[in-house]
């Protein structure tokens, strides 16, 4: 059996890749994918821990996370479409009026 630490390291790496994408990418679709990466990094930890400790709750939580991610993508893609209609582009640095 693979030790838990490996999963944790794998998950941390996935999360960091997601963070990097969120910080560095300007394409809105890539941005959304990066968010998905971070969410799934969390899922990996849930499932791995669930298997390691022999409880089912971690797996249940991972199902919740997937549902949440689906909802988030639905909203996110909607926003991307609106942004495209307005700016003829999906660069996330274009909308700057969402402030005071």
């Amino acid at each position: 059996m693979v030790p838990l630490e490996y999963y944790l390291l794998f998950s941390a790496a996935m999360f960091c890749i997601g963070v990097f994408g969120v910080l560095a990418r300007r394409n809105a679709l890539v941005y959304l994918m990066s968010v998905e990466l971070m969410l799934n990094a969390a899922n990996v930890v849930f499932v791995a821990s669930s298997a390691h400790y022999g409880t089912i709750s971690g797996q249940v939580f991972s199902l919740f996370t997937m549902a949440l991610a689906a909802a988030e993508v639905a909203v996110g893609v909607g926003i991307v479409l609106v942004a495209y209609r307005k700016f003829k582009d999906i660069d996330i640095t274009n909308p700057t009026s969402m402030r005071w």
């Binding site: 941005y31 996330i92 640095t93 402030r99």
Partner: peptide
């Protein structure tokens, strides 16, 4: 304090991280 709100999503992400 309100000047931290730039309106650019990337800035917010940076602050979050």
């Amino acid at each position: 304090l309100r000047r931290v709100q730039t309106g650019v999503v990337t800035t917010y992400t940076t602050q979050l991280v």
